[in-house]
Design a protein around this nucleic acid. Sequence first.
DNA 1: ATATTATTTTAGGCTTGTCTAAAATAATAT
DNA 2: ATATTATTTTAGACAAGCCTAAAATAATAT
Lengths: 217, 217
Amino acid sequence: MISLAEENYLKSIYHLSQAGSKSVLTNELAEAMNTKAASVTDMIKKLSTKEFISYEKYYGVNLTAKGKTVALSVIRKHRLWETFLVEKLAFSWDEVHEVAEQLEHIQSKRLIEKLDEYLGFPKVDPHGDPIPDTKGKIKALQQVMLATLKPGADSIIVAVKDSDSQLLKYLDKIGARPGKTIKVIEREEYDGSMEVSINNQRFFLSKEVSENILVNA
Amino acid sequence: MISLAEENYLKSIYHLSQAGSKSVLTNELAEAMNTKAASVTDMIKKLSTKEFISYEKYYGVNLTAKGKTVALSVIRKHRLWETFLVEKLAFSWDEVHEVAEQLEHIQSKRLIEKLDEYLGFPKVDPHGDPIPDTKGKIKALQQVMLATLKPGADSIIVAVKDSDSQLLKYLDKIGARPGKTIKVIEREEYDGSMEVSINNQRFFLSKEVSENILVNA
DNA sequence: ATATTATTTTAGGCTTGTCTAAAATAATAT
DNA sequence: ATATTATTTTAGACAAGCCTAAAATAATAT
Ligand SMILES: [Mn+2]
Ligand SMILES: [Mn+2]
Ligand SMILES: [Mn+2]
Ligand SMILES: [Mn+2]
């Protein structure tokens, strides 16, 4: 049996280890989990005993194959539920993350299989994030932050960061959705802001925004 | 904030107080919750402090208006989810209860409103149980156990007990579903078993089965 | 009225997941 | 190489929810 807290830690470790390529450190995890380092150390020990992670004292943790499977299963559920909420219940994409955080912990293989089928076996969620298959296989998209593109570059939005409702509302307003073409007109070196065009309309994006828009490489 | 355990206790107290008209006793609750009397006493104190129940030591508990509201909200969610699982995901009626026990604890007003709308504002769940409305108003059906009917009586099945998968499979097989007409042919006094006809077919039902079929009074 | 039995509560303990404060270790700067 | 700083771990505590065993109370039988 795996608890809700354990699932959330494993998911978080997975996401953090995707970002960087090194071990996930205690403080990183504490920040991500909105808790204290001491609590993280406690949980790390439990997860390590259960062989979901490998742990070297003072040097952070890494998911084992077993742990990765759990993490991907939770992510699969999260993204399928988000898709359901948007496609079937007419939620907007900025409202779904919080609810999916709860729904992802429902334990029922059958439910997820049925849901997947009902949704027509979607490949990505409403934010463009790939949905792992039953076996936890995930399509590693070729994606890069919009912030890294040079002026003149033309590319297609692949995904956006999904957990900030404010950002999503803004992106929706300017039409920055997965599938859309975005062109970098100009880039200000000193603050990383840029002018872009979407749907033949021009917008100024701060560095913060352009780092949360992922485009095809 | 109300915890999952608290919600389950309140739901259970509600169901037990519907059955009998007296206060709900510690042992009844322990049995229903699959736990020990001592644990029930502990929880009762918490719920009492939070004013979800009124509690007289040694004489059992009763829901306050506040507690009843919570219980009915959980029951509403449970029954809406069961309806969703059967109507949209093609679950059979004997598979849904367990999953709904989990889904009923998802906290999101918006989700339940949208789900209700998506399902077309159903009035009863797949087992015939009435779905409380947003305000917790529930249609008290005129219903009586099939077991109490006399031979010759003709009546319509209104609901069936929903938490026993085996029973539901059996009822489905013989066609005993809500809305169907059932006629009592004969009743054996000494064991309470009866012969009935459904869809012009005859079946022998044990007392146990006939107590779990509810018909219009 | 009193004794026996059944029910409920209390006492004390365990696990999970959290916390703060203190100690240990690693990283960095001189 | 050593001192300072930052990070991580340990120690000890707490709330929620559960448990067993013992004590208290209520119900019932004589
Ligand atoms: Mn999300
Ligand atoms: Mn998403
Ligand atoms: Mn049910
Ligand atoms: Mn039901």
